[in-house]
Amino acid sequence: MFDQLFFGYCALMITTSGILAISLRNPVHCVLMVLVLFFHMAGLYLTLQAEFLAAVQIIVYAGAILVLYLFVLFLVSIRQELQLDAFIPNPWVGRIIAVGLGAGLIYVIPAFTLGEKGAWPLAAIEELTHTKALGQELFTTSLLPFEIAGLILLVALIGGLVLARREEVGSVVNEGDAVPQGNAQGKDQEVVS
């Protein structure tokens, strides 16, 4: 009973803070909403007996990554908002689609049946402790995905650097091109990515 109540609370908070994070105007408030979201995610992991993941969620996401975001926000003062033309100007179209999608997904939930059990029943995890089970799984069965994820981080780093760095002056001759208009654009993108 308590588990279900706790899950309901966490789910509600995650949804609310997620919606607030994308709809608030002030970027700092958005980041703080994401912080709330991450804490409740950690709560969900706890209900699933994944205490290591919960700790990592708080230390890495809430502790490191969000602080990094805040630093970026403070260093790059975004004075003007970047305006993009919406593909579909009327916001209600999007909202109706979103609500419809949500309703559809809730509608199919009763039909959900659990598939076959994995290699790690709860008892085995409790015996071995979650951290150890996770480590073993990560470095044996899921070795390939793990390495690809590492590569993705490398690529993201290179991509971020390329977008954020200043155009070299002189090394690339570029006749007939317009005057460089500063690299504010590049920085804006960096925030997004």
């Binding site: 991509g159 971020g160 390329v162 155009e167 091109d177 317009a178 460089p180 208009q181 654009q185 590049g186």
Partner: peptide
């Protein structure tokens, strides 16, 4: 590809 699209910053 996201980065490649934004490569030409001028």
């Amino acid at each position: 590809v996201y980065a490649l699209v934004g490569l030409h910053k001028k």
